[in-house]
Design a protein around this nucleic acid. Structure first.
Lengths: 192, 192
DNA sequence: CAGCGTATAGAACGATCGTTCTCAAAACAA
DNA sequence: TTGTTTTGAGAACGATCGTTCTATACGCTG
């Protein structure tokens, strides 16, 4: 087995465990057992737990970014592309493994004691806002729209996580439609 | 010193520490020292750490609920009362001690391993949605509006916490104005 | 087969967790 | 004062944390 295989397996296992139960609740021994790797090999690949955490955050960032972009590319019209992120959220929330945004969660857990985690979470959210900003600019919307839609997306994530339902995606999407149509000066359709 | 004084001081100290650094990062010994109370007295007042955590959650819930309601009562018009929550958020975000919503944070930290914490967080957020629902109903808005504004408020909290700025309150407020005016069928003012 | 280098499983380390116990000082009763 | 009870600070407990070390099994070369 190559070194890359081992690394990948460790990160994938840590991804699952950290997402399901949080970072501090998962010890190195449990990760070692679940990944089927010796403790020595684990520390051969990663110098410390925090380096595994950072690798998992990178995986989460890549997975989220790619998944979102793929979903956005399915839409053609600028308005639909702006709203596609909420369809992506809906799919995500529907997964059994969904337990909230890993960045919000890891920031809540470790943001105050780990500057690295805090900064990575901040950059991830910032890159999302920048991405939404590009979509909004393509649609010709004023610059206010992007942070508003981003806040809606964040709120949907925490609401879905805590409430345990995926309704939040639908609510957020309908709110986004109103905001987008107002920004583009279209008449927004209202559920009479 | 009465028993109530000791309890109150322990809870107030735990409030500060848990808010600033998270729950799992603060040990009983640190809490004991910061509260100026012997370990024996601490365990005399609370049978376990988790009971302290629950007491702090109750304090957070009461503080948030009362603060929000006080702010809402300052406004008279139904529309202003609906938007007042975002002014309350703005004040909160501006405090030095702000480090995100304690319920979102504690849910992220312990929701998966402590059913009590998960349920309390769920109920807190649900009670907020119900409160917003009453405000929306008083304004004559359709039932869709309340969850949408709630999601905006949640998103503002996580965004303000992670980004470290209080801009999110303003963005959320402006988005809320558009949603409220659309729901009430008023022409929404746009920043041309 | 003999001998050597590597990889592994898991024992063990020091630190810290939540919690309990000890034991001396303080407070009170008579 | 003397005897009893309550309080106090903090030592100590077992468990678990992240991390390191050791002792054994294995694969290779000759």
């Amino acid at each position: 087995m190559t070194s890359d295989d081992v690394r990948t397996r460790i990160i994938a296992t840590a991804d699952d465990l950290y997402n399901a139960r949080g970072i501090q609740s998962v010890g190195m021994d449990e990760l070692r057992t679940a990944a089927g790797v010796s403790l020595k090999k684990l520390y051969q690949e990663f110098p410390s737990k925090s380096s595994i955490v950072m690798a998992v955050l990178e995986r989460w960032h890549a997975s989220w970014t790619e998944g979102l972009d793929a979903r956005v590319r399915q839409a053609d019209a600028p308005r639909d592309r702006l709203l596609a992120m909420f369809d992506y959220l809906a799919e995500w929330f529907g997964q059994d493994s969904f337990r909230g945004c890993g960045f919000i969660n890891s920031f809540a857990e470790l943001g105050a004691v780990s500057p690295d985690v805090a900064e990575y979470a901040r950059k991830h959210k910032e890159s999302f806002q920048v991405y939404v900003g590009h979509l909004a600019a393509d649609a010709g919307a004023p610059s206010d729209l992007a942070p508003q839609l981003s806040i809606l997306a964040e709120g949907a994530q925490t609401t879905a996580a805590i409430a345990g339902t995926s309704d939040a995606a639908g609510h957020a999407r309908r709110a986004a439609e109103v905001l987008v149509d107002a920004a583009l000066m279209r008449p927004s359709r209202r559920a009479g």
